[in-house]
Design a binder for these strands. Sequence first.
DNA 1: CAGTCGAGCTAAACCGCTCTAGTGCCCGGG
DNA 2: CCCGGGCACTAGAGCGGTTTAGCTCGACTG
Lengths: 350, 350
Amino acid sequence: MGRPTIADIARQAGVSKGAVSFALNGRPGVSQATRERILLVAREMNWRPHSAARALGGARSEAVGLVIARPARTIGVEPFFAQLLSGLQAGLSARAVALQLLVVEDTAAEIEVYRRWTSEHRVDGFIVVDLKVRDERIEILERLGVPAVVLGGPGRHGSLPSVWADDREAMLSIVHYLAALGHRRIAHLAGLPGFRHTQRRIRALRDSARSLGLVEAVSIPTDFSDAEGAAATRRQLARPERPTAIVYDSDVMAVAGLGVATEMGVAVPGELSIVSFDDSVLARIVHPALTALSRDTFALGEQVARQLLTAIDAPGTVRDLQTPTPLLTVRESTGRPAGEGALGNPDKPL
Amino acid sequence: MGRPTIADIARQAGVSKGAVSFALNGRPGVSQATRERILLVAREMNWRPHSAARALGGARSEAVGLVIARPARTIGVEPFFAQLLSGLQAGLSARAVALQLLVVEDTAAEIEVYRRWTSEHRVDGFIVVDLKVRDERIEILERLGVPAVVLGGPGRHGSLPSVWADDREAMLSIVHYLAALGHRRIAHLAGLPGFRHTQRRIRALRDSARSLGLVEAVSIPTDFSDAEGAAATRRQLARPERPTAIVYDSDVMAVAGLGVATEMGVAVPGELSIVSFDDSVLARIVHPALTALSRDTFALGEQVARQLLTAIDAPGTVRDLQTPTPLLTVRESTGRPAGEGALGNPDKPL
DNA sequence: CAGTCGAGCTAAACCGCTCTAGTGCCCGGG
DNA sequence: CCCGGGCACTAGAGCGGTTTAGCTCGACTG
């Protein structure tokens, strides 16, 4: 005999299929004695529910989807994603919910997967990442009526709850810190310009430039890759009036930039201060260790998972959640610019 | 009306459910004209199959499982995993097969998930990683009769096909290269001693030590973390007769080790050569860039995915697959040991 | 002591799809 | 003219659960 079904258990226990279903699901409708007998038989026969059969009846699939539209090769490079994934896992596995992961080429394919998985009842909800400036995915998910949590914000993401950190405040804390050290020329190697958080960071830098008396505050968009990070750094450092500090939107770029500086004989932090917007082992283990914004991406993932589980349980009840603004961890890659006197207190950001 | 079912299509097209099923699945049993009419109606109604209903009939679930038994937090740290994941994705998405990912605490939980997902028909097969020296999972998966591919080998993994690279040859190529440079004291910061590949690497080093005339060749097991990598490096470098070269089993540890060396004022590669067993951006972007074994982990993942898909399609037909032995990429972190004359050709490993 | 009620259980419909066992019809051969 | 065979299609039985309607029986009520 193959896998036992509730019919087998029913026969064995001398009851009906219905009674077995009630017993196994802790639902009223059977006496305590019968319930125990059924459970015993089920355990003896090593019975397990057939998820498809359950799903057919309209039940949960106990899985959530994460669809990422990026070149597959680049995912492995980003510690951020790996960290997030770990956190999501941790949050989900508490309730034994699995994560369906799919990497696709572009947003069109991503949307197609949303449609398919939803109508196939393959997942109970979605996690949406890489929020764009104008994001069509939001509306589609709303129309599909499937629970979803957006990673990023704040701002327009329709009725979908989001989990976000304040990128603006974070950028301001970096810039204030650098300005207090005496830096007046700051470059910002940003991420993909289509992403919302990239825009927020760029705007924050621009907005604060005047009030802090910065002579220069440029943002250069990149694709987050180490290659572009290195190339852009090279260009910046080759300029006659080069920046005295560079803020990188990812740790991979920051480390690549550090490499370029070393190679070009630009001392860090003597002649160039480096700040990474992302913290990870990467930032800690290089030398000099990088001053970085410490956001706990793992915890963020956990948070998102919890939020999504709640949204699935009780749609409509869950609202936006702001995670703590990441704090600047000062390490060895930042200092006063060359030829600067004491100005402010460099150890106290903000 | 909710989502359309084949019954709706049948009614609309004026045929039976069976005819619709035949038409939609490209099966004989309907005329060309009817088939086209049905497909047209299906498209108009925006019909999509209900995966659960299909699965209930015994069909594929179009998903494969990857269960990892490691602390969730550490997954994010390993570029290897992220890379592998990307590769798996790439291999699977060619056939629109999704990946069910779950991170669990220990092997017992992992096995429990294998049982559950199998009996729930949640996945069509599994990918097994972190092959242990004595691995109980193999036997369990065989008994469950579910397709699975083992990452690692060669050697005892029962009837399950495996994808593997020759760790022994790889380690030998590193040691030969270092010996040719003139190194006689080599330390090896290994991974978890319970893993099979760790054992193979340790043995390869030990076996070659005598014939290469090494004075010292120790392997120190670690947990793969940057912390243990750093600590062990510190201990090695503090010894009176310290090694002139260290081989690290992972790039994270190698970079951490590089940091310790810099911090202790030990010049790399002047006084210490560093080789990483894993290559990734990490090894490329630090300075000096690390000499590392370049295995294409992404391609490995793709390969494993293909292997598994074949195993699912035609169980029993697929056998072990050896991937190319990783080649040493010489960068800046290796050189002649201090006070060594010319010996062999350092640029030509093996 | 008849009527009511609820607990405990059964029978069967149902979820959406697949697949097998027919059924009707047409065509060609003997 | 009849029969066999093949094609196009239908009816309906499963797949393994959940859920609802209904049945029985004993206890309690008035």
